[in-house]
């Protein structure tokens, strides 16, 4: 029996490197994304603790960066850096809230419906499809313009409501394929309960997809909130990147050349979005290794000196 011979050798090899059970692909993309997003998140979490009151008015109006104010002041003499820290915290809070709510909703409608099947699946699919065809941002504008007292939670809820449907469709498709796998049948044969099969056997295999959906939902939420706040429909009394831009626009920052007022929030939106996209790309590469191979191949082609190609005789003529 070759297995019995093989077994001790394999376990000995495993003992040599105990922690390395799965080789995680570590890409520069993922690292860059994590570092940038982490730095911005850290700024949002710690910044407000050290910087002053973003609403405090001073006589030093519309001052350029310098003179003790790292990012200058607004038209009413408020500290832009303090505002930026609070805005980062506000935007990230909305992003995380929406991401969490959207992922729970899409997991519920996508996974549960697909696993149970029958009428439940039909109903859940119908709800998903209806939510999918409703145009998101206009609905958000309509809802948030009707509600008089807009809190952070309400805005997050409205954004989550319009952003979960796409993810639910993807999760439903993958669950439909997973539920027919033999290991699901095997756990049923073992006597596992339905909810346990869903949570323990199916859900972990959906993790990469859930993570990528979540990142996407966070990007959508931050951009959506920025859009809403910019047109004056954001959460009242909360600083976000969008509300900073709204006040900068109202204060004629562009006309007055006060770039330090509108560039920082705009830049942070762009950079944070880019960082999350980088993370999302690398999750995609983990889900679909073919993508990674393509990236590696492309990089190899880039790094190969052109002259090398010419040294191979014959190939030049046949390719041209």
């Amino acid at each position: 029996m070759e297995q019995t011979l093989e077994a001790p050798r394999a376990s000995a090899a495993a003992a040599v490197q105990p922690k390395k059970r799965q080789r995680r692909p570590r890409s520069a993309k993922l690292m860059a994304g994590l570092i940038i997003a982490g730095a911005i998140a850290l700024f949002g979490i710690l910044g407000p603790l050290f910087l002053g009151d973003p609403n405090a008015i001073s006589n030093d109006t519309l001052a350029a960066p310098g003179n003790g104010m790292l990012l200058g002041t607004t038209q009413t003499g408020q500290d832009v850096l303090a505002q930026l820290a609070h805005a980062t915290r506000g935007s990230l809070t909305i992003g995380v809230l929406v991401g969490a709510m959207a992922i729970v909703a899409s997991a519920f409608f996508g996974i549960v419906g697909a696993y149970i099947g029958g009428w439940t699946d039909e109903t859940f699919s119908l709800i998903t499809n209806v939510m999918l065809v409703i145009p998101g941002l206009p609905l958000v504008i309509v809802i948030s313009s009707y509600v008089p007292d807009k809190g952070l939670l309400l805005i997050a809820g409205v954004l989550a409501l319009t952003s979960w449907a796409g993810g639910a469709r993807v999760l439903r498709a993958v669950t439909l394929s997973l539920r027919n796998r033999d290991y699901v049948a095997a756990s049923r044969v073992s006597g596992e309960k339905t909810w346990r099969i869903l949570m323990v056997e199916i859900l972990p295999n959906l993790m990469p997809i859930l993570a990528s959906q979540m990142v996407f939902a966070v990007i959508f939420a931050i951009l959506g909130e920025a859009g809403l706040a910019f047109i004056g429909l954001g959460a009242s009394g909360t600083w976000t990147w969008g509300s900073m831009l709204f006040y900068a626009q109202n204060g004629l920052a562009l006309r007055l050349g006060a770039w330090w007022w509108f560039v920082p929030p705009g830049l942070l939106i762009a950079v944070f979005g880019a960082a999350l996209s980088l993370i999302n790309f690398s999750i995609d590469e983990i889900i679909n290794p073919k993508l990674r191979d393509q990236t590696l191949a492309a990089r190899k082609r880039w790094n190969t000196p052109r002259t090398k190609k010419l040294t191979v005789p014959g190939t030049e003529k046949t390719s041209s």
């Binding site: 796998r181 033999d182 290991y183 049948a185 095997a186 756990s187 044969v189 073992s190 006597g191 323990v200 056997e201 972990p204 295999n205």
Partner: peptide, 20 residues
């Protein structure tokens, strides 16, 4: 019944959950 009657599936590459 499940305690008394058990099954070995055809494809060992599919019948074990890759995550566990």
């Amino acid at each position: 019944y499940r305690r008394d009657v058990q099954m070995v599936f055809q494809d060992p590459f599919a019948s074990l959950n890759p995550f566990h």
